[in-house]
Nucleic acid binder design. Sequence first.
DNA 1: AAGTGGTCTAGACCACCCT
DNA 2: GGGTGGTCTAGACCACTTT
Lengths: 230, 230
Amino acid sequence: MIKHLEVRERLLARIRDMRPDDVLPQERELAETFGVSRTTVRQALQSLIEEGLIYSVRGRGTFVSRGRISKGPTLTSFSDDMRARDLEPGSRLLTAERRDAEPELARTLEIKPGDPVFHLERLRLADGFPMCFERVDLPAAPFPRLLDQDLEGSLYQLLAGRYRTVLANAEQRVSATTLNRRHADLLGVPLRSPALYVRRRGIDARGRVVEFARSLYRADRYDFEMTVHR
Amino acid sequence: MIKHLEVRERLLARIRDMRPDDVLPQERELAETFGVSRTTVRQALQSLIEEGLIYSVRGRGTFVSRGRISKGPTLTSFSDDMRARDLEPGSRLLTAERRDAEPELARTLEIKPGDPVFHLERLRLADGFPMCFERVDLPAAPFPRLLDQDLEGSLYQLLAGRYRTVLANAEQRVSATTLNRRHADLLGVPLRSPALYVRRRGIDARGRVVEFARSLYRADRYDFEMTVHR
DNA sequence: AAGTGGTCTAGACCACCCT
DNA sequence: GGGTGGTCTAGACCACTTT
């Protein structure tokens, strides 16, 4: 087990029993308590600060943040996201086909026009009810036989497991829209209901574009929580 | 000058002249070149990795990312935000009054029910056209004579300049909605047009709640861009 | 003056990738 | 086996806050 992650876990356990603005023991003391160097303690503290769970003030100390665990803008799959909300994720595959990339899609995926891509359409469910309609395009070359796999589970997990491709970061654009007949029916809401429209370009550790996804989230059941800094 | 920031600057200059997937010198070499320890080099590299400018692969090296500088989710004012889009920010003050905090607002602002708060309503403009309708509540105590100030400019700048209160981070919740008669008229769009609805709680460096803002952005003219990691 | 977090060092070993 | 990034150590000094 990596030490700073272990320290992080033990700090998390402490923080859970503390109240907002309570002060944590000082770093040198934590280092002694956990039997690690101060550097390692600081590495663990830093990750908690980045998530907004604690904050530090020079010359005063490190304190528990107000507010609760609001997950920062990290890259999570729909499945993880739903589980974090205590909802059971599901999926209904609507379309799965091989296509030739249109020029604009090719540019987005950084491949050549006409190169083969996989196009998926899925209805994402939470506790069995529609939450999100998503269309995903992926370059076909890195993912042989993708369409033969089980595409109703987590796509990210499939890419990581079978194709050793892990998404490292994503460019995301979030806007609002109202739903047309087809999308409203799929999501089980009235025509012209509001929805969050998210366009995402997923990038792997080497900087290759792995997916371009467009999702429509029911506005009455979903919102983005984020903590922004400085 | 803090060393790791200086190293960061010098690395940035190098990266600008490199192409995607070019490899950077190895960390031990950079340390020697810049006359600092490897730890300090790593601190500089880390900040560039977090911004997506470079990526590292264990056992291979550190490389320049594809894609350009995509600003992460940082805390910007409306004014900064508009200027980044080459739009001239403006403001029309609709309401500015002192109120007593309702219980729910008091809880959000972490003050006592009945404590005085300032309530502002502003129409935010971009190149003179409505972009966003915002309602802001602030605790009155830390901001004496706030209502006598010029409230049509940047609120963040006013808080920083006159009251020495700098927002350190904010909890934000983004959802979608459709506009009612009043809000549609204010924003100059048809009834029931889609809009982004943002609720934000701004926190200062000491963890005190400074503002609670609810904003409605025209969906046809505004979206959130963000880069998410890991 | 004492205590806190912020920065930095020099060196060590580990985990992983390549040839 | 040699080279890379990842983790960790023990110690030092600095900048800031509080007493």
